[in-house]
């Protein structure tokens, strides 16, 4: 094992350990805000995995969108809907058992399937496109058999409708003023 491979292996197992422990915390911790911090850890480890797989650009986007956007939105949702002393009530025993059985069942089935399937692997060190970001840009806006311009446009429509829908849903119907002042009052109500 050469040094590069050794570091690759060590980093893989280290990140895997951290992200699995953090993922377990996300689903079990009683204080919901701590779960959000654990989620941020899992997502940062995810970016680390993407770098290990040579997709630096996707790792950057993961950090930018997930940590800079989604986690902060989730933290906002926590701040608006619960207070520091709130702890989640434990799930009932039957529900817990159901969850464990189904997730372990899924895990076992998937692992058996992976073990018994021989995937058509590509050659050990094939050429990676020199500039992944450039290549992704070409794909996203290309049309024809290998372009994704239609899904790209649909995603942009989806995002637009999500933003408009979110404003419509979250707006306080009782208030005529801008929805931002409504939001800050909401937070005040949940803090006290």
């Amino acid at each position: 094992m050469n040094p590069a491979e050794l570091t690759h292996t060590i980093v893989f197992y280290g990140l895997a350990l951290v992200s699995i422990v953090a993922a377990l915390l996300v689903v079990t911790v009683k204080r919901i805000f701590r779960a959000a911090v654990a989620l941020a850890t899992v997502l940062v480890c995810g970016a680390g995995f993407y770098i290990l797989l040579d997709y630096d650009f996707i790792a950057g986007i993961q950090l930018l969108v997930y940590v800079g956007g989604i986690v902060i939105l989730i933290v906002f949702a926590v701040m608006l809907t619960s207070s520091l002393e709130d702890t989640e009530i434990r799930p009932s025993k039957s529900r817990k058992a159901l969850g464990i059985i189904s997730s372990l069942g899924f895990l076992a089935t998937a692992l058996i399937a992976f073990q018994s399937t021989s995937f058509p692997l590509s050659a050990p060190t094939p050429e990676q496109p020199s500039d992944v970001a450039l290549e992704i840009g070409r794909k996203l806006l290309g049309y024809g058999s290998d372009g994704y311009v239609l899904p790209f446009e649909i995603i942009s429509l989806l995002l637009l409708s999500a933003v408009i829908g979110a404003i419509v849903v979250a707006r306080n119907p009782l208030k005529k003023s801008s929805d931002l002042s409504g939001q800050s009052e909401q937070s005040d109500g949940s803090a006290t």
Binding site: V26, V27, I74, A77, V78, K96, L111
Partner: peptide, 28 residues
Amino acid sequence: LSTILFSIGLYGVMTRRNAVGVLMSVEL
């Protein structure tokens, strides 16, 4: 690795009571 993370998320979706917690599990 990815399957373990997926099944942890699945467990969270089924057992979390707080809706924000369910959202976090879906993100997983």
